[in-house]
Design a protein around this nucleic acid. Structure first.
Lengths: 236, 236
DNA sequence: CAATGATTCAAACGCTCGTTTGAATCGGTT
DNA sequence: AACCGATTCAAACGAGCGTTTGAATCATTG
């Protein structure tokens, strides 16, 4: 890190771009440095020279994009709240502030295009040790702010219920961003618009907004009929 | 496959159980046969003897659970439709028929407990070649049947919109099943009930049902304001 | 009990991985 | 022109991978 800065950094950038693309296509765990350096037209040793290790490269691939993306989300929310002057925001607007910046990233070839979105969707379910550790640090602020905004927009929904619904929301988002094949499976016929990011937003936002403000079932917060089994993480 | 059947099959089963658990904990790609056989207290060569290859083992880990799970879902839907005698079902019931059998699996230690659910959630975003190929074959029938049922329950929603919403639904489900840490991140305070599978169902179903029957925005199916960029899969 | 087929086992195979090395090359400065 | 730090390069390192092998062991049958 730091350093007197490379003259142009062409090699570094080519490695980052190649790594991002390959992680997206085949997954992080199975992508080798030899594939990355071959794609980047760069010597194998360049990765360890410029980044120190594969792990550091992975970290940098994420951090290069995640910072600006989440900053854009917060700025979006700031703008909405400033315009609303203390009044609670419509749920749709809040969801928009989460989803739209991601789509913007996918439009901007300079920001990595749709490649990074898929990578991000993958990362959120990535089991590998240090990949999972990268995201929370970047998402903490975003989550706190948006949980707060949603809490004001949906005051009748218990905070805990809201936390779950945000969890579901991130699930639907990540899954969609990861670009899974479910759609091809569901729509046996042609499913146009799958390549149009804005179309996805227009479909995703109403779905999520409706889910977020669903009526709270009477049994949700009290008197569980029966508590059996677990679905949580194992005790290591 | 076939074969005169092993006398007891203890070794086979131990390998399957160990593989399932380890795939869940660390992900499929980074789990080695040596880890699996060590956990199963079995010789390394036993995997290739009993399954032929690591790929075949992975396939069998999934198929052992996925068949019964999806059969249970279809049976659940059959029961609902038989009782309804042709009348459309409430969306909540249909969603229940998808979610509840999964939770049942998670209750049944003999069926692999919650381990398999997390594994399944992971698999749905797994980029690795042959893992992605396993699921569609098992899910095709389920998706067709449930798409049909939802189409009758929500006749005013265009089929294509419905396909997208089912996609979002599978996303939220998979993500939740995969047991991600988002929840810990969202609920800065304690988030009880995370270990209670039934509690998850009670929260997930209203969310999904509300999302599925969200009002269709006027602009959703016509006159996209602008089509820029793509979010779909790259052209290989 | 001897024979047979199924199973287990320790050891090794060839391969790919991330990383290291030390020399070659490049650009800019004195 | 001579120098020098930064960068590139070809080659190798040791470790771990999935798989194969061939002998040892086991359980059953004639």
């Amino acid at each position: 890190m730091s350093g007197p800065a490379t003259r142009l950094g062409a090699t570094r950038d080519r490695i980052l771009a190649a790594a991002e693309a390959l992680f997206m296509e085949h997954g992080y765990a199975v992508t080798s440095l030899r594939e990355i350096t071959a794609r980047a037209r760069v010597n194998l040793a360049a990765v360890n020279y410029h980044f120190g290790s594969k792990e550091a490269l992975v970290r940098e691939v994420f951090e290069r994009r995640l910072g600006p993306l989440n900053a854009a989300r917060l700025a979006f929310l700031d703008r909405l709240e400033a315009a609303a002057k203390g009044r609670p925001l419509p749920v749709e607007r809040i969801v928009e502030a989460i989803v739209v910046p991601a789509i913007r990233v996918s439009h901007d070839p300079l920001a990595g295009g749709a490649v990074f979105l898929r990578l991000l969707g993958r990362a959120m379910v990535e089991p590998t040790n240090y990949v999972r550790e990268i995201l929370p640090a970047h998402y903490r602020d975003v989550i706190v702010r948006f949980k707060d905004a949603l809490g004001r927009a949906l005051p009748h929904i218990p905070r805990q219920e809201l936390a779950w619904r945000m969890h579901f929301m991130f699930g639907a988002m990540s899954y969609t961003m990861a670009g899974n094949d479910t759609l091809q499976l569901i729509g046996s016929c042609r499913l146009d618009g799958a390549d149009d990011a804005e179309a996805i937003v227009r479909r995703l936002i109403p779905f999520l907004a409706a889910g977020l403000r669903a009526p709270v079932p009477a049994s949700a917060s009290r008197a569980p009929r029966r508590a059996v089994g677990t679905i949580g993480r194992k005790a290591a």
